[in-house]
């Protein structure tokens, strides 16, 4: 039996949580309403073509949408490359002060404003990537479509993916670390109990945590989709759709950042931008929902 006071307390919490949900719903409705004009005018054409010339009423969202998805996929891959070893290090190998220092640094990095990453990426990371990753890959494997173009400036889909990936490392690491550490110790004991070495035990624990790691990556993907500043600075801002990762491209977020201010000058520009936001928001919400529920299901499965 809940006491009356409990109920009252719960009731007092309700308006706040509901209002948050309401804000989400209202903003989606607003986006839908604002999108209607463009959708009626251009229809499916909007998603099947690329190009951006408001003077001629020519809009195509294919390049930024594909760009957003590609950049986020690369970002998640990058985040995984850093997050998994970090998680294992922090959870299994580091101890005492060192462990505290490393986890605080990761946390601190998560708190940095993204403009810091954006500036750092454009000044240092992109040139390095161009010289040490893109150019070697292009000369070694030019027949692979993804590597088929010569990197010109370095600002590209790949650059944006890796830069955003690095900025999401703290977020993804926090999620994977939390999942890893929430595995009940009885399973670690089971590993050592059957004679596993530390390495074998970590392998078993990671495979146990796999659904949670995948969920973390999905949540990371959703976050990378919305990343704006870093994308705008590193992606190269080109509406041309290319199969090559070293070519400049666009993401929806970068497109909005660069076009929104002037959009009111043209009849459909603003509405088209709303369509693009709507797409990204819907994908994000769906992925976040899927990621969180996967995480919850995983947790209920392993807790005894």
């Amino acid at each position: 039996m809940r006491s009356k006071r409990d109920k009252l307390f719960l009731l007092s919490l309700l308006p706040l949580s509901l209002s948050l949900l309401a804000i989400l719903i209202i903003s989606i409705i607003t986006m839908v309403l604002k999108s209607v004009d463009a959708l009626q005018r251009f229809g499916f054409q909007l998603f099947a073509s690329s190009g951006w010339s408001p003077e001629n009423e020519a809009y195509g969202l294919l390049a930024p949408i594909v760009g957003s998805l590609t950049v986020s996929a690369l970002a998640v891959l990058t985040a995984l490359i850093f997050s998994l070893p970090l998680t294992i290090m922090i959870a299994e190998y580091l101890q005492g002060i060192v462990r505290g220092v490393v986890s605080s640094i990761v946390e601190l990095m998560g708190g940095l404003p993204t403009i810091v990453y954006a500036v750092w990426a454009s000044q240092y990371l992109v040139p390095l990537l161009k010289q040490f990753l893109m150019e070697p890959l292009h000369s070694a494997l030019p027949f692979i479509p993804l590597f088929s173009c010569r990197p010109v400036t370095g600002f590209s889909i790949l650059a944006a993916g890796i830069s955003i990936g690095i900025s999401t490392v703290p977020y993804v690491t926090a999620l994977t670390l939390e999942a890893y550490q929430s595995i009940p110790s009885i399973y670690r004991e089971a590993c050592y109990g059957i004679g596993a070495t530390r390495y074998e035990s970590i392998k078993i624990m990671i495979s146990l945590a796999k659904p949670a790691i995948v969920a973390s990556l999905i949540l990371g993907f959703a976050r990378a989709l919305g990343e704006t500043t870093i994308a705008a600075v590193t992606v190269g801002n080109s509406m041309y759709l290319s199969s090559c990762l070293f070519a400049p491209g666009y993401t929806v977020a970068a497109l909005i950042a660069s076009q929104f201010a002037d959009a009111y000058l043209y009849p459909y520009a603003e509405s088209v931008l709303y369509v693009s936001i709507l797409i990204v928001v819907l994908i994000s919400v769906a992925l976040s929902f899927y990621g969180s529920t996967t995480m919850i299901r995983w947790r209920s499965r392993i807790i005894v």
Binding site: Y187, E189, A190, G193, G195, A196, R198
Partner: peptide, 19 residues
Amino acid sequence: YELRKLIGMVFQVPNPFPH
């Protein structure tokens, strides 16, 4: 690690690997 290879253990709480 070598020692544990010689010794099997069944724990107070059943802990088969859930995955």
